[in-house]
Design a protein around this nucleic acid. Sequence first.
DNA 1: CTTCTGACA
DNA 2: TGTCAGTA
Length: 119
Amino acid sequence: MVMANSEILRRRAVLPIGTVMDLTTLTARQIRYYETQGFVHPSRNAGNHRMFSLTDVDVLLSIVQQRKSGLSLGEIRRMREVKARQTSDSDARKMLQDDILNQSGFTQAGRGPYGQGFN
DNA sequence: CTTCTGACA
DNA sequence: TGTCAGTA
């Protein structure tokens, strides 16, 4: 699984809920609720206060947009799940290609190291 | 001062 | 969801 420095930085939890409220126009109540629904995963600091990452903010912003376009939270959750599967598949395809390129795996003809179902 | 959890309308 | 209470 590749991850650029920028991605690592985007995942670092450094924003208090107050800042996230300003950035997303959401109330603390809504942000905490979305956390219970599994949309964002803020970490906690020494004082048990939530600390959000830029990735969390992106997710929250997309929720704000999707809600404006009429989608329910449940529908938004489904969209998230579908995209997660598509990402997994493309990641798996990439892993298979890498294996083919460096001649690892598929040495005994037959099933690859990732089983069937892809491509 | 900011945030947290639990609870009620 | 908003809001109030009592904390940390």
